[in-house]
Design a protein around this nucleic acid. Structure first.
Lengths: 193, 193
DNA sequence: CTCTTACTTGACCAATCAATCCATAACTGG
DNA sequence: CCAGTTATGGATTGATTGGTCAAGTAAGAG
């Protein structure tokens, strides 16, 4: 081996995630990335390839962490409805505390839609995974009588994913904590028995 | 007077709206605009100012038309719940038919958040207007017994706006018509008595 | 202690960006 | 028909874009 790199790859990637989430792929220039990541130009290209590769890696990592956090929040609670509430509110609190002010996944969808296969592969995968987890949890809740018996679990899962997206857009647009909590409260009515 | 312009200002603006909605502000270059709008470079700058002015005018006009269509769809039906259903599905059908494949308003929020006052002024205004209309309609429905008596109209309005945003994101991400209709169906459960 | 590896720094590249200038064309009021 | 005015099209601007090249240097391996 030889000279080790002077920066931490993971923290640099984390900073890239924040920058891309805030300004999108097209709105982020390489100088912006260099300043945010606090690394030199050549280090970026050596370590992450080109700008697009870095974006895809950032999107993949963000998606993994974000869905992981959401789903583990949902499964952490014994009561199904409360778990879903925590899953939805988890992002809200992060957004308002400034920890994760914007969602890179939502930004990727609105920026590229379905036009770029490699981006879509990531957004589709995270959507699919989230839907399966939501649906499974909804089925449990229906069986246990904690949720409405006539609820369609598949449609319900899709509804929850859309609600999460709507929450993220609202938060990005400057909605207050009260407004976001109110949204969650009404959304849960759709599932309740 | 003198030489009249050879293009129609409104149709050129409409094409700019589609281009900005598809690629965002940063992702749209002036050559892309010229080709989509089918006008010359100088015509663009003479007629619309610079790129940013054109974007703001496009955003304003899109917002006006889009909220107008949504709200008139809602008020067109006598039954409150059905009106809300039509309002939510109106965009869905437009999106799937390719008439309005993407929402410029959502794109503006995800791209800029609250960082640019002139953009935010537009997104805030359309949000406010939509919320007021939703809330008023929800109150009517509650009074008439068509909606749940214990529903918070203000929170319900915010919920509907978030649901609409979620639908638009889902449609942009490639969701099927069945999935989008399913989302609307579940969402309406939250309002029903 | 030296050799080798590879990270860092800064200069540099062609291409593209948004925007402007200018000459020409086209229309209208007189 | 002419004069005044405005639109159009092409050339061009300086700045910025993403990406590369090359020289210098730090650090582990033998």
């Amino acid at each position: 081996m030889a000279r080790p790199r002077e920066f931490d790859r993971d923290t640099a990637l984390q900073r890239a995630i924040e920058t891309f989430a805030a300004h999108g792929f097209e709105g982020t220039s390489t100088p912006m990335l260099l300043e945010a990541m606090k690394i030199g130009r050549q280090s970026l290209y050596d370590t992450f390839g080109d700008k697009r590769s870095l974006y895809l890696e950032a999107l993949r990592r963000y998606s993994e962490e974000s869905t992981g956090a959401t789903l583990s929040a949902m499964f952490a609670s014994d009561r199904v409805l409360q778990g879903i509430e925590h899953a939805l509110l988890g992002f809200v609190d992060d957004a308002l505390s400034g920890a994760a002010p914007a969602c890179l996944g939502i930004h990727a969808i609105t920026e590229f839609g379905t036009s770029q296969p490699d981006v879509r592969a990531v957004t589709d995968a995270v959507g699919h995974r989230t839907l399966l987890a939501f649906e499974s949890r909804l089925r449990d809740g229906i069986e246990r009588g904690e949720l409405a018996a006539d609820l369609d679990a598949s449609a319900g899962a899709q509804f929850l994913l859309a609600t999460l997206s709507g929450l993220k857009v609202a938060a990005r647009g400057g909605a207050s904590q009260a407004a976001l909590h109110g949204i969650v409260g009404v959304a849960l009515r759709a599932l309740s028995p």
